[in-house]
Write a protein that binds this DNA or RNA. Structure first.
Lengths: 195, 195
DNA sequence: ATTGATATATGATTCAAATCATATGCGGTG
DNA sequence: CACCGCATATGATTTGAATCATATATCAAT
């Protein structure tokens, strides 16, 4: 969905294709923001170095997504971007993009809408993380993300889903199994289906 | 900070003043979105009715903030707004605002920037909620919110802060006390100061 | 001033998720 | 093919935050 919005209003600007090897850094936390990126194919992990020296997963950008959008208005990145798998990036010069948006209200409105969606999604995850029970947490997450057929396509490893909703992967695996055994959930390949 | 941005680009539109008594609803979850609101004075709580019948605090809007920004692009509210204290609201007709933004790129850019900041703030809270240790969670939160003097003005009750970072208020009180006793934190009136 | 509601505070106990450990499966790579 | 790294999976144990209970302080309203 983000894909269409972005492709729509970025067509007039000539982006630069940029291949990225697995494990390669696109930018580092603290780097000056000179470009705006759009992920064509692959997967990009955004991590932030915490005070205690740890690393926190902030977001996993998937094919068709832009990422680190907030950096459009800040001079330096507040997180690092690392390719989880071999990826293809579209690169736009930040200054060009800002000028372009200023001249094309429809484009800016599209971006605004995308940001609004982001805010809502983040609030949803935030709310989910306040649910104490792992079981309820998992069920609530699936309910929010599933389609009309009550199916959820997993665009990332279960491990990352666990992190996203604030559970350890061990607990997440166990809860999935329990739900499956209780006939409340069905699993096949990359899908979860609520019953 | 949000205050200045909004006041700047909403000046040309004539808003409608709207007094709100404590406990009064501004809108209900599911209502059609016809207006965009800006909180002049007071405090507004945004709550969402969860599936299990519970209520989740999504956000506490303070004086000078706009809220439920995401609703600008959706037909109905996904949360309810209730005045925590007697408040004064500025009301803009949604359709008017959208037209206005389309005609004034600078205004839209301002809004875009505000949304970007929202996204970053939400990601920060998200990250904080993944910290298991209550002590580290509290410390990390304060570190992120404090000013240059390492002081944090509490614009909401400790209870709400606890909820914001995903702790029960009991645990939060206890951790504050422990940090105080360990001389890592100082408390006076509505301030927390890291030592 | 009295009342009522809510925030703050703290103790005792429980329990469920984190942690630690270990094993298997699986996809990519030389 | 064989190896490696990582995801998935599951068991045993621990622990610390949630829960339950109760008390006091504070603030708002009448």
């Amino acid at each position: 969905m983000n894909k269409h919005i972005l492709e729509q209003f970025l067509t007039d600007l000539k982006p630069l294709g940029l291949p990225l090897m697995k494990g390669e850094h696109l930018f580092f936390q603290g780097d000056q923001v000179e470009n705006f990126y759009y992920l064509k194919t692959g997967k990009i992990k955004l991590i932030r170095n915490t005070i205690e020296g740890g690393q926190a997963l902030i977001h996993v950008a998937l094919a068709g997504e832009s990422f680190a959008e907030a950096s459009l208005f800040s001079s330096e990145y507040h997180c690092s971007a690392i390719a989880v798998s071999t990826s293809e990036i579209m690169r736009y010069k930040k200054s060009d993009l800002l000028v372009y948006l200023e001249q094309k209200p429809a484009a800016m409105k599209g971006l605004l809408k995308m940001f609004a969606q982001q805010v809502r999604d983040l609030r949803t995850v935030n709310e989910i993380k306040n649910i104490r029970s792992a079981k309820e947490r998992v069920l609530t997450f699936i309910s929010h993300e599933m389609n009309e057929d009550k199916e959820l396509y997993l665009s990332m490893p279960l491990k990352d889903v666990a992190y996203k909703i604030g559970l350890t992967h061990e607990t997440f695996y166990r809860e999935l199994k329990k739900l499956e055994q209780a006939r409340k959930l069905q699993r096949r390949d990359g899908f979860l289906k609520l019953l």
